[in-house]
Computed example of a mutant assay.
Amino acid sequence: MTPAYAPADHPRIAPARTGILIANLGTPDGYDYWSMRRYLNEFLSDRRVIDLPRWKWQPILQGIILTKRPFSSGANYKTIWNEEKGESPLMTITRDQAQALRERATAEWGEQVMVEFCMRYGNPSTHEVVGRMVQAGCRRILFLPLYPQYAGATSATANDQLFRALMEQRWQPSVRTCAPYFDRSDYIDALAGSVERALEGRKPSRLVASYHGMPKRYLTQGDPYHCQCRKTSRLLQERLGWEDGIIDTSFQSVFGREEWLRPYTVEHVAELARQGHSDIAVISPAFAADCIETLEEINGEIRESFEHAGGKGFTYIPCLNDDPAHIEVMMNVIRENIGGWV
């Protein structure tokens, strides 16, 4: 529309709207070498992820890691790829989450609200989606990183990228970022519901809550991620009404030679098998959507580690994905943070 009393040559301005933008980690465009290399280069060049000095890290990354790792990572992605849609499961699930939220938001607030999703690494990029939302008239944007527990390498870098995208906008929208939701009662209820459905009333000898790992050094430098993971596990145990000691907290996806948060899931499940725990289940409370770390790493490498050590029963409990209970958690977070805007 053209503003009232404006000259005839005034540029058209879209009607004001409120935007809701959810963000996930990201995904390569394909599992071929160059797609994987572009994605890994962006991911592993992020100083929030690898904080070594550039002069020290970039020669290793460009000369060694990005020469070999795209082949192995691409082979892993190929085993889980959604061939029908030509994309990774993370992309499919995140789009489904955004669509479910869009339908809920439209029913509640009408066309004044716009819901989109972006990825921190890869496509659709945060820069692209923020630009599209501003062009569509979003004068306010609520940003929800899809990480239940806060970490500098996840929530913070997603926020960093949002702010970088805003630097490109001549007319910047007002912005709010959502806090992590690791201890919300509705989130814990949703996790517990997924456990109960997957196990169908059965109680394994151990439920392993496997969270994405990070260097132990980050904890000592003040990152709250480790403590928030531990609290999620404790609250889940209380909600399920299970006795102490049945839920273990561990960490996966270790990278490099530096010590990371322990215990490492791949080693821990093998030790459980050696201790005689022949029936375990694994859940991933840090992931809002199933991805390479859950579908391939947990259901592949970690399962094999357990079985190779003598374990028999291994149940992987899927992420909350676009389950209605998970969508309701997101909607509750959105409602609490969007107050006064709609």
Rank of each mutant, 00 (worst) to 15 (best):
L199D: 14
G122K: 01
M133S: 09
L191A: 03
E271S: 02
R104V: 07
H308N: 14
A190P: 02
N123H: 07
E304W: 03
I20C: 09
R104Y: 09
D46L: 09
M36F: 05
F71K: 15
L52Q: 14
T106P: 00
H268R: 15
N123T: 04
M36K: 02
E297D: 12
L235M: 12
G313L: 06
I327M: 05
Q252L: 08
I298V: 15
L61Q: 08
T2C: 06
E42Q: 15
V254W: 04
P204T: 12
W260G: 06
Y150M: 06
I141E: 05
W260T: 07
T265M: 13
R48Q: 13
L191K: 03
A190L: 00
R12S: 11
N299G: 00
V49C: 03
R104P: 04
M214W: 06
P15F: 07
V134H: 01
R176S: 14
R164E: 15
Y225R: 15
W171V: 03
A136P: 00
G137R: 00
G310D: 07
L162A: 13
Y187G: 04
L162S: 11
D96F: 01
E307M: 12
L101E: 08
E196Y: 11
G63C: 03
A14S: 12
R12K: 13
H308A: 15
F251H: 03
P89W: 12
G222T: 11
G19E: 12
A179Q: 14
Y77S: 01
M1R: 03
Y264W: 11
G26W: 03
R140G: 05
A107C: 05
P145E: 12
N299T: 09
Y147D: 01
E83I: 10
L25S: 06
V269Q: 05
G193E: 13
Q252R: 05
I188G: 02
E83W: 12
Y39P: 05
R120S: 08
R54M: 04
R37A: 10
L40G: 12
R69M: 02
I280R: 00
D279Y: 06
P173H: 05
F287E: 07
D29N: 13
C229M: 10
Y211Q: 10
W34R: 08
L240A: 00
D248M: 09
N123M: 00
D9S: 11
P124T: 05
T67I: 03
H308Y: 12
A288D: 06
P224V: 02
L162W: 04
L235S: 09
I280M: 06
I13Y: 01
A192P: 14
G311S: 02
E111Q: 13
P224K: 03
G300E: 14
V175I: 15
A273N: 04
H127Q: 09
L261H: 07
R17L: 05
S253K: 06
R17M: 07
S284K: 01
D323S: 13
L191G: 01
R95I: 13
A325D: 15
S35Q: 11
T265V: 10
T18M: 11
C229Y: 12
R17G: 07
P53V: 14
F143V: 10
R170I: 08
I188T: 04
Q169H: 06
F287K: 02
G276M: 10
S185H: 10
T220Y: 15
Y5F: 13
Y181N: 06
D290N: 13
G222P: 08
